[in-house]
Design a protein around this nucleic acid. Structure first.
Lengths: 299, 299
DNA sequence: GCCGACCCATGCGACAAGCGAATGTCTAGC
DNA sequence: GCTAGACATTCGCTTGTCGCATGGGTCGGC
């Protein structure tokens, strides 16, 4: 409720105390102020609300009709205040998260578990998909937080990035591959391989950061799904890139060889929030937990 | 609803139109006024309610929470307005009537019937009893209209009188009484009779206006109820006064002889309303119907 | 790539509303 | 009749609110 009492609060107090003077001192006003506030209210409603008696006031018929409505209004505003307080203290509200699938291995579940434990009142929804789609949803206001990686060189237009971690990249090879035992590998050594990628255009895939070095992969099969990619590689149909976050959840019959650090920059994984508008309390809290989880994974 | 739009109406309009500028022109304000009104509201609630976008505004989480409450408040006030309008046009409200029993013969029923026919929405309650009791109820605010007669000399303190009619008085005699056939009768001729009255003190009874002439009645049996009085008179136990309004509902074995006009002033029957406070619309309408009914009876 | 259109925020001056203090008016009770 | 209590009213003054004009920012067209 507003700190300066509304006309209806004054009305309710006067009705309860049956006196302008008592209501005034009870609300910290002078009697003349209350007198004029009630008069204002009576002008607004076009009818007297109180009978003025020599020993105080009494509700008129019209005032008696208005009374329950004024009480209901006050009650409504009090309820709204309570709900907004709950929102502020993360006892209520909603949080719409979008994330790319590779962060689902450990980063996102960890942050989500912590968030739900601390703020069970917040309704969390989560969507999965590529980075570009989530950034678009974010800009349209249909998402509160997006956890994405810079796959293409696009800067986060319309979004504020919050860096989480840089992850190195691995190459997934069939277990019998000639390079399977290496401690690291250069892209040049893989120039003859066929690559399993999510898109025919390498700019749209995990390869994009490698393109700067002049490397042009030969795209073989196209598979967006993670399981499918692994299947193709295991069957000896090609090789593919694996970000570090997904390394722990690769099938056992694949060999993961780290890419040489000079060949490709680490992939930046970050959370994005809409730019220009203040993140909700829930989004801020979730961001903090994400950074915590990222720090835990990096160590 | 107030003619100057409340902050909540502005809030609702902005939420609906998703634009300060559109809401402003829609409400007859300038954009800056709406901007600052929303800002005031946000200060009051301690949280932003709208995200400012380049192409308008959008509700924040907090605004989305507040929205249904603001709508409910507006709806409540609209309902209250409708009910007060109904009260003004006599489509609702209540009317508490008090009346002495003699007006129940014709005056009150006639007015009541007309009132209920015209204003069926008004809840009418009615109490019966002596004039003094009703005037007290009126002053205490427990009655809207009292239909009374000036039995004792008391002036209507704290009440505004509305004259209805002056009625002449009759003497009720046993049918075999020596004066039963007269066209009128003087009090002096009844000096030896025993009087049936509502009280041992003649000042409190119908006799009071006759006391001014020096007449001192001999009070016999005391009976407040009208049926009882008639019974005593019919049994030859005394005589009693009958006001004109009750004349038509006397039992057939009594003789009614008009009192000589010089002996007693006509009894004033009037409706009283609380003094100093405005009568409700229902009370005013009922007063008018009472006067109509009184005029009809007088003719 | 620059410019104009659109939208919201803000500074400014003017006006009106709201406040407190003091005074007036009415009623009840002694 | 006079005092006490309660609401109405008057008077200055503070405060808030409005309209107008301006500034900052983004989006779309040339």
């Amino acid at each position: 409720m507003p700190t300066s009492h509304s006309l209806y609060e004054v009305f309710l107090r006067v009705a309860r105390l049956a006196s302008f003077t008592a209501a005034a001192s009870s609300l910290g006003y002078t009697q003349s102020a209350v007198s004029r506030q009630i008069q204002t209210l009576e002008d607004e409603w076009g009818t007297p609300l109180f009978d003025r008696l020599p020993r105080g006031v009494r509700l008129t018929e019209a005032g008696r009709i208005l009374l329950p409505h004024a009480e209901a209004v006050g009650e409504r505003l009090r309820t709204a205040r309570a709900e907004l307080d709950a929102l502020r203290t993360l006892g209520a509200g909603r949080l719409r998260i979008g994330a790319i699938s590779t962060v689902d291995a450990a980063l996102l579940p960890r942050a989500l578990a912590a968030f739900r434990a601390r703020h069970p009142g917040v309704a969390v929804t989560r969507t999965e998909g590529p980075s570009a789609k989530h950034l678009a949803l974010l800009a349209a206001g249909d998402l509160d937080v997006a956890v994405v990686a810079d796959t293409s060189a696009e800067p986060p237009g319309g979004c504020t990035p919050h860096h989480l971690l840089d992850e190195r990249m691995y190459v997934a090879l069939p277990s019998g591959h000639r390079l399977a035992g290496r401690t690291d590998v250069r892209l040049a050594e893989l120039a003859d391989e066929e690559w399993i990628a999510a898109d025919t255009r390498p700019e749209e895939t995990l390869m994009h950061s490698a393109l700067a070095g002049g490397f042009r992969p030969r795209t073989g099969f196209v598979a967006a799904d993670w399981i499918a990619k692994q299947g193709f590689v295991a069957a000896g149909l090609g090789v593919t890139l694996v970000p570090a976050l997904a390394a722990s959840s690769t099938r056992a019959d694949l060999a993961l060889v780290p890419l040489h650090p000079d060949d490709t920059p680490r992939r930046r994984v970050y959370a994005a929030t809409p730019r220009g508008i203040a993140p909700s309390p829930a989004a801020l809290a979730f961001l903090a937990l994400l950074k915590e989880a990222a720090a835990g994974l990096a160590s």
